[in-house]
Design a protein around this nucleic acid. Structure first.
Length: 321
DNA sequence: GTACAGGCAGTAT
DNA sequence: ATACTGCCTGTA
């Protein structure tokens, strides 16, 4: 497989990678537990550690490499197909956005940006940690959780830790979790672990069910609201229409899709619209209605659009991850 | 010291 | 229904 690796990413990002044929890059937000050492990337997928290595020479600054090796511990055959969603018809998905100028631009800038598929239990716990904080903090919390409750795996002379499953996390004490610097999110983490461990929610069902039914189940869990459930649905439950709306997405909508927001204005608010006022708009607009309108506009692969827009606005604002 | 970071639940109106 | 508030932790 020909591979094209580059730091497409954000200037300060230690993360983000892409390769071509098919081209891939991924938002850091999707890869909390990935790290790069030398020419290899290592990532945690539940109780597996995944690895891929860039072998061979860079063809004179083209970032094209002729050989990439995918490994996993323990064995997880063809994990790259699963994790990078190589079965998605990316050409078809992206061509569907062709009429949208902003998306077209973002797609040209970040060719092959993908939605990554995460291990569902890990994904649910990860986003339970995501409220009111930033990516660096989430990475720290999750890394702490793995170190404390996961199993060590030694690879290439380095120690990695698997992600503890729900049964394990369901048994740990609140204080043990608090030592992972998760703060008040401990209640959400325990609620997720308990819901899975006690079969109150069934991940197979969540995968099978349609977006709305699946989301309804997730929203029953303490600490899992609209945005976080959409992340879980998109990144681990194969709901490609899920479109998580956070402050960054709100900004990009405000800048480039104001009509989507204005449709939902509660009253005709004559005040001048500014970024600041728009950022507060999730207080003033119903997430559900906004979400429906957005999914109607972007279509059944809205989640892919969300990733391009998120990546675009983050880079535009030069955010460090 | 203060503001703020990829939300959420609880409470008051 | 909608507005407002506090919240762990860490960094700028």
């Amino acid at each position: 497989m020909s591979l094209n690796y580059s730091h497409t990413g954000l200037p300060n990002s230690p993360l983000s990678f892409c390769y071509t044929d098919p081209e891939i890059s991924v938002n850091s937000g999707q890869m909390f537990l990935w790290q790069k050492f030398d020419n290899s990337w290592y990532g945690v997928y539940g109780d597996h550690i995944l690895k891929f290595s860039i072998l061979g020479q860079d063809k004179e600054g083209t970032n094209e490499y002729d050989n990439v090796q995918f490994l996993s511990f323990p064995e997880f055959k063809n994990w790259e197909r699963h994790v990078f969603r190589l079965d998605d018809d990316i050409k078809n998905i992206l061509s569907g956005f062709g009429k949208d100028l902003i998306l077209s631009k973002a797609i040209r800038m970040y060719p092959g940006l993908r939605v990554m598929r995460q291990e569902p239990q890990q994904c649910m716990i990860s986003f339970a940690c995501a409220s009111n904080t930033n990516i660096a903090m989430i990475r720290r919390m999750l890394s702490n959780i793995c170190k404390k409750f996961g199993d060590p795996v030694s690879i290439d002379g380095r120690e990695f830790f698997t992600f503890p499953n729900a049964d394990r996390l369901n048994k740990v004490t609140t204080n043990e979790l608090l030592s992972c610097a998760v703060g008040y999110r401990v209640k959400a983490i325990k609620a997720v672990a308990n819901a899975i461990a006690s079969n109150n929610i069934d991940i197979d069902y969540l995968k099978r069910a349609k977006y709305n039914a699946s989301k309804e189940e997730l929203l029953k869990i303490y600490g899992i609201g609209n945005k976080i459930s959409d992340c879980i649905l998109l990144f681990s439950l194969d709901k490609l229409e899920a479109f998580p709306i956070d402050v960054w997405i709100t900004r990009v909508l405000s800048l480039f899709y104001p009509w989507l927001l204005n449709e939902n204005k509660k009253e005709n608010d004559n005040k001048q619209r500014t970024l600041k006022t728009d950022e507060k708009l999730l207080y003033r607009y119903k997430y559900e209605i906004l979400s429906e309108n957005i999914r109607r506009y972007f279509g059944k692969y809205a989640g892919y659009a969300q990733q391009y827009l998120f990546y675009y606005i983050r880079q535009k604002e030069s955010r460090k991850w």
